[in-house]
Amino acid sequence: EIHIRTNGEEQARKVYKMLAKRNYDVKIEQHNGQWVVTAS
């Protein structure tokens, strides 16, 4: 499982799309105001 911390919604969405293209199961979560993308 991969966790990627991003500094904002826009970046989180870019990372989300990139990983989704590679057939990862991707989730975006917010932790303490930080956007974290989780891929498995």
Rank of each mutant, 00 (worst) to 15 (best):
L19R: 00
K17S: 10
I4W: 07
V37S: 00
Q34M: 13
T38R: 07
N7Y: 12
H3S: 12
E1F: 15
V26P: 05
K27W: 08
Y16E: 05
A12P: 00
E9K: 08
T38W: 08
E1P: 11
V15M: 07
H31S: 09
I4E: 02
Q34Y: 15
E10W: 10
D25L: 13
I28Q: 01
G8H: 14
E29V: 11
Y24A: 05
I28V: 05
D25K: 14
R13G: 04
M18Q: 08
R22Y: 14
H31M: 11
Q34P: 01
R13L: 12
I2F: 13
N7P: 06
I28A: 02
V36K: 03
I2S: 02
H3M: 13
Y24G: 03
W35R: 00
E10P: 06
T38L: 08
T6G: 03
Y16A: 15
I2W: 14
K14N: 06
E9F: 14
V26I: 04
K17R: 11
T38N: 03
A20E: 10
W35L: 01
N7D: 11
K21Q: 13
Q34N: 07
H31I: 14
E29D: 05
I2V: 06
S40T: 13
V36P: 00
G8I: 13
V37T: 00
E1L: 14
V26R: 01
Q30I: 13
R5N: 06
E1W: 15
I28H: 00
V15Y: 10
L19I: 03
H31Y: 11
M18G: 04
V26Q: 00
A39G: 06
H3T: 15
R5W: 15
K17W: 12
D25M: 12
V15Q: 02
I28T: 02
R5L: 14
K27I: 06
G33H: 06
E29N: 08
T38P: 00
K27M: 06
Q11H: 12
H31K: 12
Q34H: 13
N23S: 07
N32S: 06
E29Q: 10
N23L: 08
H3W: 13
S40I: 12
Y16T: 03
R22V: 06
R13H: 07
Q11Y: 10
G8Q: 11
D25P: 05
A39S: 05
V37G: 00
Q30Y: 14
Q30D: 05
V36Y: 12
L19T: 01
E10H: 07
V36H: 09
K27S: 07
M18W: 15
G33F: 04
W35M: 01
K17T: 11
R13F: 07
V36W: 14
I2N: 02
W35Y: 04
E1A: 11
N7L: 09
R13C: 14
A20Q: 14
V36G: 03
N23D: 07
K14T: 06
E1S: 12
D25R: 12
N23V: 04
K14F: 09
E10D: 09
K14D: 07
V15K: 03
E29R: 07
T38G: 02
T6M: 10
V26N: 00
A20H: 07
V37K: 00
M18P: 01
R22S: 07
Q11N: 05
G33W: 03
L19D: 02
Y16N: 02
Y16R: 05
Q30G: 04
A12S: 02
D25A: 11
E9H: 07
L19W: 04
V26Y: 01
T38F: 07
A39T: 06
W35F: 05
Q11E: 14
G8P: 02
K27H: 10
R13I: 09
V37F: 01
K21I: 09
H31Q: 11
I2R: 04
A20Y: 07
V36T: 07
V36R: 05
I28L: 07
I2D: 02
Q30R: 09
E9T: 04
T6Q: 03
A39W: 12
I2P: 03
M18C: 15
E1Q: 13
V37R: 00
G33R: 03
V15H: 03
Q34K: 08
N7G: 07
I4S: 01
H3I: 15
V26M: 02
Q11S: 07
G33D: 07
Q34G: 08
A39F: 13
K27V: 06
R13W: 14
K14I: 11
N32V: 04
Q34E: 11
N7I: 07
K17F: 09
H3A: 08
I2Y: 08
V15E: 02
S40D: 04
Y24L: 08
M18F: 13
N32Q: 09
G8M: 10
K21Y: 09
N23Y: 15
K21L: 13
N32W: 05
I28C: 04
Q11G: 05
V15P: 00
G8T: 15
E10L: 10
I28E: 00
Y24N: 04
H31N: 09
E10Q: 10
A39P: 02
G33N: 05
H3P: 02
K21F: 08
E10Y: 08
K27Q: 06
T38K: 08
G8E: 13
R22I: 07
V15G: 01
V37D: 00
K27F: 05
V36D: 03
I4Y: 13
N7E: 10
V26H: 00
A12D: 00
R22G: 06
W35I: 02
A20F: 07
N23K: 08
V26T: 03
H3F: 13
N32Y: 06
N7H: 09
V36M: 08
Q11T: 08
R5P: 06
H3Q: 12
V15N: 01
A12G: 02
R5V: 15
N23E: 06
W35G: 00
R22M: 15
R22L: 15
R22N: 09
D25N: 13
A12I: 02
T6V: 15
A12L: 02
I28Y: 04
A12N: 00
T6L: 15
E29M: 11
E10A: 13
W35E: 00
D25E: 11
K14Q: 10
E29K: 08
N32L: 07
Y16I: 05
R22D: 08
A39V: 14
N23R: 06
G8R: 13
A12K: 01
L19P: 01
K14H: 09
E10N: 08
Y16P: 00
K21A: 15
K17G: 06
A39D: 02
S40E: 05
I4Q: 02
A20D: 04
Q34D: 08
H3D: 04
I4H: 03
E29H: 11
W35H: 01
T6N: 03
E1K: 14
Q30K: 10
T6D: 02
T6F: 15
I28S: 01
Q11W: 10
R22F: 14
V37W: 01
A39Q: 03
R5Y: 15
V36E: 05
V37A: 00
S40P: 05
V37Q: 00
N32T: 04
N32E: 10
K17Q: 12
W35P: 00
I2Q: 03
K17C: 14
Q30S: 08
K14Y: 12
A12Q: 01
D25H: 12
E10T: 09
M18R: 06
G8V: 13
A20N: 05
R13M: 11
R5I: 15
E1V: 15
N7K: 09
K14S: 06
H31V: 13
V15D: 01
I28M: 08
E29W: 14
L19S: 01
N7Q: 10
I28G: 00
E9G: 04
V37Y: 00
Q11V: 08
Y24T: 04
I28R: 01
I2G: 02
N32R: 06
R13E: 05
I4L: 05
N32G: 11
G8K: 13
K21D: 15
K14V: 07
N7A: 09
I2T: 04
A12H: 00
R5G: 04
N32F: 06
Q34I: 14
V26D: 00
H3E: 11
S40Q: 06
R5Q: 08
R5F: 15
S40M: 10
I2K: 03
H31W: 11
E9M: 09
S40A: 06
H31P: 02
A12V: 02
E1M: 13
I4K: 01
T6K: 04
K21R: 09
T38S: 07
I28D: 00
